[in-house]
Nucleic acid binder design. Structure first.
Lengths: 334, 334
DNA sequence: CGTTGTGATGTAAGCGCTTACAATTCGGCT
DNA sequence: AGCCGAATTGTAAGCGCTTACATCACAACG
């Protein structure tokens, strides 16, 4: 591979000049620019970006850390980030944290050692304090899908609470009064907030929460099934169930059908996330749209703005969830 | 951030010695090793991997290029790659090609300039020749989910043809004789092979292909719906339809139901890929399992073996598809 | 006691680029 | 002609590390 040195020789100019035309970092006369450009073309020269990074202390790469890479959710998120960053000539280094504190920290350390210009973090095992400290450090941090109070400006998230509220309100407005809830793991922030939204909606309708009708799942389909089983076994009547995410809703729906219930005839179900498969379900799953791609894109814009100085970019920190109404929810006949 | 120089000063040894203990690249007495290690700890030193790469001409990073990042498929693939590479201390740079020739080439150029030690490519727009030439170049290439004849050893793929055969055979063995086919885009290699498998299976049962019952879709759900509409409009009887992927199968299934047909009562449907949502469908979709995660993992192993010299690793180039039987396929009563 | 071999450590030359600073050129004025 | 400042180009010092090679200390040996 040709180096900048060979280009400079062939063009008959200095290293610095070549560097300048490559990076458009200073005025160069048209004549020399042409000489350089043709030397570049002849030698098929491509700057070694590793060397560039070392010399400029800019790596032009952004680290991303996610809980997982498979599944419908995170791919969409990375996709959003990558798209805006790539179009600005930056690139992404992706690594996973498996929702494990050590692995998450490890991944972060790794990205730092890789001299990323910034990091986009989607982590759930490390503490808020850790993140606050981290954000004081040398490498800028944007936190996706989590709100850390001390560093709100670095967070790009969905208003989960409002989402939870909308979901339950949708049911209430359709006449449902006995509403069960299949929650996410209580230690996860988003799960907590969705649940808080649920309670707020009930309260707004002057309905007291029946703790019996709440089941704590783990965001997996199987726990949706288990939750539905549990709820049905209670013998307490209910006409609708809110699930804290679509996977659990799918499990719940399946189990309800297996128990001979009709959805939405006997029971309405609403999920959360609007993942890719939710409209494939039968009946189509009503849910709360999670603008994952947009949130990813916004995280990318945040970086462009705060790290690469593109000040014209508007940043929004909190995204609004919206209702997606499909067949799984129906007016309560009772 | 501390540099190796500061560590060497604090430990009272030379740069080289610090480097040696960091990389375990030569014998160092226990005493000095301890001195170095504690200096490292005190300064919280982390090698600058950019500088390492420049000096060693090893970047310890592997480039990945994919058509897209969202959707159920590619996330799983990256996940497989990342997992095995990460556990070997390597990392991944991900970029997308959008199935567009220029973008794919651009992405590849980018990864090369980034001095990746190797590239894992999942591309469909560039030509076989381009890939063959590329593989002769300085950076090793492994090609996922595509078989390029000249460089078979660099390809990790699924036997799509056999998969197509298994799908159709599954229907044939259950008494179906009038079998429709909703194909993928004819210019995609995998679509072609799956279709070839379909025809082979029919042939093995001495059934001649009815071209009328073949519809070319584009792998999207909507074209599955369109395909089903088209087929039903033909007025020719058929008792089963093979879809070249699950998304189209989902569309076909939905449309069949909307037209008042029972799946699998009136018509059996089988898909291909076994994507995450296929078991969420109602009825559960029978399909051909695509071991995406394993294929990704194998691509990672290929790199470990051929680039980092881990010779003990076994490489398999062709993966066998397997049948996943769910409710959408039933014995033909007629 | 001088040699020699061996293991441990140090020295210093890059890796390919960026960038502060110095040098040069050149047009416009007086 | 002589001078000045702006525009252009060149020089060279790093960026933080790896690694070939040199050096050193020391034990074993004849």
């Amino acid at each position: 591979m040709a180096t900048i040195y060979e280009v400079s020789r062939r063009a008959g100019v200095s290293l610095a000049t070549v560097s300048r035309v490559m990076n458009n970092t200073a005025r160069v006369s048209d004549a020399t620019r042409q000489k350089v450009l043709s030397a570049v073309a002849e030698l098929n020269y491509r700057p070694n970006s590793i060397a560039q990074s070392l010399a400029s202390k800019r790596s032009n790469s952004i680290g991303i850390i996610l809980p997982e890479l498979h599944g419908p959710f995170f791919g969409t998120l990375v996709s959003g980030i990558e798209q805006v960053l790539r179009s600005a000539g930056k690139h992404t280094i992706v690594t996973v944290g498996h929702s494990d504190e050590d692995k998450e920290k490890d991944g972060i350390e790794f990205l730092i050692s890789r001299k990323c210009d910034a990091m986009v973090l989607h982590v759930d095992a490390v503490s808020d304090e850790y993140l606050e400290t981290l954000s004081k450090g040398p490498v800028p941090v944007v936190i996706a899908n989590r709100q850390v109070s001390g560093i709100a400006a670095n967070c790009i998230a969905l208003d989960n609470r409002k989402g939870g509220e909308i979901a339950t309100r949708c049911l209430l407005e359709r006449g449902h009064r006995e509403i069960a809830y299949i929650a996410g793991p209580a230690w996860k922030t988003d799960a907590k907030e969705r649940y808080a939204g649920h309670r707020a909606a009930l309260q707004a309708f002057d309905i007291s929460i029946n703790e019996l009708l709440v089941f704590e799942g783990d965001f997996q389909e199987s726990s949706g099934s288990a939750g539905m089983d549990h709820l049905l076994g209670l013998g307490r009547p209910f006409t609708a169930v809110v699930c804290a995410n679509d996977s659990m809703a799918a499990g719940a729906m399946r189990t309800a059908r297996e128990r001979g219930l009709d959805v939405p005839g006997d029971i309405s179900i609403i999920g959360f996330d609007n993942v890719n498969f939710s409209h494939y379900l039968f009946p189509g799953l009503s849910t709360i749209d999670y603008p994952t791609h947009d949130i990813g894109g916004m995280a990318g814009r945040w970086v462009l703005r705060h790290v690469y100085g593109n000040d014209r970019l508007e940043i929004r920190n909190l995204f609004e969830p919206t209702l997606v109404l499909r067949e799984s929810v129906r007016q309560n006949a009772g």
